[in-house]
């Protein structure tokens, strides 16, 4: 059921995640294609975000987190014993559900990541380019020295996107980036995504199926089942295919019911 992808940048090889005794997702096999947008959809609590956060080792921050299986990035296991998670996160950036600009100026929000990664070029230029590419330059070019928190929610989120692309990662992970935004801001962020697709690989978790259709090339549908011997629901990858196929010609009944809005 998983299509073979020739140019995979990230691959999950039988990934199972537990939080303490609680199993979150199990047995994920998944290939993320380079320079495409891949959407993760599915009902709440099915482990979409959990899988996403495995890609840049953000789950390391959670004490009870444990993982089995492999996540390969360019064929190298991200959870290998000698891997530096800091280097992983530099190469695989992330944009969060809630806009989280640093309590610094807009300029510093962009420059921070560049500086800590040893950026040698023209910082002003980098700030402008990044803000332009995140389609937020016009709104904040006159107040670069103001706090990032002074922007509106949608602008903050695009600032966070600019912050992520300023360090030039190969992959950008987006965890429901529009769930806290109004429709107009959402549209702007989606336009930004289209522009970014050329240079970046993007993985986006979304609850909004129209959004998945609009922005993604590939779609992974996750679902959750009640497992025996485990308290609560356990997520699994139900179907993964080109977005067109998932929405027009789903293989499984669950997928069909979900994408047509019958549950979720």
């Amino acid at each position: 059921m998983t299509p073979s992808i020739a140019d995979a940048i990230i691959s999950c090889d039988n990934v199972t995640v537990n939080y303490g005794a609680f199993a979150a997702v199990r047995n994920i096999f998944l290939d993320i294609p380079r320079h495409k947008v891949t959407a993760f959809i599915g009902p709440s609590g099915c482990g979409k975000s959990t899988v996403l956060r495995c890609f840049n080792r953000m789950n390391d921050l959670i004490e009870s987190f444990s993982m089995k299986g492999k996540v390969l990035f360019h064929g190298q296991d991200l959870y290998g014993p000698r891997v530096d998670p800091v280097e992983v996160r530099r190469r695989i950036g992330m944009v969060f559900q809630k806009p989280n600009p640093f309590p610094k100026t807009i300029y510093e929000n962009i420059a921070f990541g560049a500086r800590i990664n040893g950026f040698k070029g023209d910082m002003d230029e980098l700030v402008e380019t990044s803000l332009r590419r995140a389609a937020v330059w016009d709104e904040c070019k006159d107040k670069l020295q103001e706090s990032g928190l002074s922007l509106s929610g949608g602008q903050q989120q695009r600032l966070c996107i600019a912050r992520a692309i300023a360090v030039e990662p190969e992959v950008i992970l987006m965890d429901e980036p529009c769930s806290a935004l109004d429709p107009i801001s959402t549209l702007k962020v989606e336009e930004t995504l289209h522009a970014l697709k050329k240079n970046f690989t993007i993985v986006i978790v979304t609850h909004n199926m129209q959004q998945a259709v609009r922005v993604s090339d590939m779609t992974a549908f996750y679902n959750a089942v009640d497992m025996e011997g485990s308290d609560g629901m356990v997520g699994y990858l139900a179907e993964y295919n080109e977005t067109r196929e998932i929405f027009n010609n789903p293989k499984s009944k669950d997928t069909e019911e979900y994408v047509t809005g019958r549950f979720g």
């Binding site: 990035f73 991200l78 280097e87 530099r90 990664n117 040893g118």
Partner: peptide, 14 residues
Amino acid sequence: ATTCYPPAASGLTY
């Protein structure tokens, strides 16, 4: 214009 960042000498290795 990715030339402005120093290359990661050791890849992902710590």
